[in-house]
Design a protein around this nucleic acid. Structure first.
Lengths: 192, 192
DNA sequence: CCATCGTGAGACACAGATGTCTCACTTGGG
DNA sequence: CCCAAGTGAGACATCTGTGTCTCACGATGG
């Protein structure tokens, strides 16, 4: 096998393994390296050839999650149109990554350390900017800080992802449930 | 020491150990039994005399969390006054238990099993009933299901508890941030 | 056909946490 | 004063998951 072919196959395999691991760990966050390997259809030895260890795997999943979020943020065009519509687009774009995000959200190892991946800061900044724009345009209320709105969005995504896995929320309702609650809240709005 | 004195002291100690463990595990959910013992000011041997093992400790914390929630729900008088005010009271009453709830929320061991503590079902039912009352009274919108609103409340509590621990949200803002977001959402409301 | 390389299966040692046990100390009651 | 009971400290075995290694197999390319 040529050197080119080698790296290509490895890259494809790596991505496939990553996706499988994400899917499995979303359902069972305590899954063993053995189970992760099985789920990906490879042996534990090969899994270790891709990722030095469990920590490296989780870090790679973290990178994947960050990348998916940034992609969703890009596709949502947060600067365009009303902030509320941008939030709705963002939630819709982020749904495919919701399971992975929920797993990462519960992976305390990533947050308890003193140093955390700077990708989250970039994401927080971009989302915070979206909420800030909404406030500046008079669209969003100003008594809820952008930081808290960002935090709340993550929390709602994780909640809804878990509720969806348990069948308590229908998958097709995911974007509506999150965006409408975050934007409009539970109170009925008087028709203008 | 009399038999009466024995059981009394054990009960007091047990509660103290439970509180210490809750406080520690809120900050570091992967803390060792050794660390839990140190935090409670007792030895690992004594800790094992109170709780057969880590699993038993976590289950006891789960019971405590459920009890705290039910207490908060009782004190919030969910049947009284407007549903929105009841939600505000509930969030305020639940704040002292928020850290413990956030820990339990992230303890996958409790949720991934096929059988989970029925206390949560009781709580879900009571909270769901509160949201349902709000809908029945025309106070809450009906396109967000009570189940989802309950789920979202848990998620927001956990999010805000973690954000508070990290200093991203001030502790005194906890009730407002959660209740106002859950009830009113991010959108500005036109003055009636 | 042969050489190379990735892979799977398994053995193995290691690390960390857990559960159990013993024993000396001290504290409180009779 | 003496005894009983709880406690702390530590030793010890165990267990689970992990990380590393070897080796045989199969596929691919020259």
């Amino acid at each position: 096998m040529s050197h080119l072919g080698y790296s290509c196959l490895m890259a494809l395999d790596r991505d496939h393994v990553l996706r499988s691991a994400a899917a499995l760990l979303t359902r069972k966050s305590t899954a063993t390296m053995d189970e992760v390997a099985k789920a990906a259809g490879i042996s534990r030895a090969t899994l270790h050839r891709h990722f030095a260890g469990r920590d490296a795997l989780v870090r790679a999943l973290e990178q994947l999650g960050i990348a998916e979020c940034e992609g969703a943020l890009d596709r949502a065009r947060p600067e365009e149109g009303s902030a509320a519509e941008a939030v709705r687009r963002l939630v819709r774009e982020i749904q495919p990554a919701a399971g992975l995000l929920a797993f990462l959200y519960g992976e305390n190892q990533l947050w308890e350390g003193d140093r955390q991946n700077e990708g989250w800061q970039r994401l927080d900044a971009r989302m915070g900017a979206l909420f800030q724009r909404g406030q500046r345009d008079g669209e969003f209320r100003i008594d809820l800080s952008p930081v808290w709105l960002t935090e709340a969005l993550y929390g709602l995504i994780a909640s809804c992802a878990w509720a969806t896995l348990d069948g308590r929320v229908a998958s097709r309702d995911f974007p509506t449930m999150i965006a409408e609650l975050l934007l409009g809240g539970a109170l009925r709005r008087e028709e203008p």
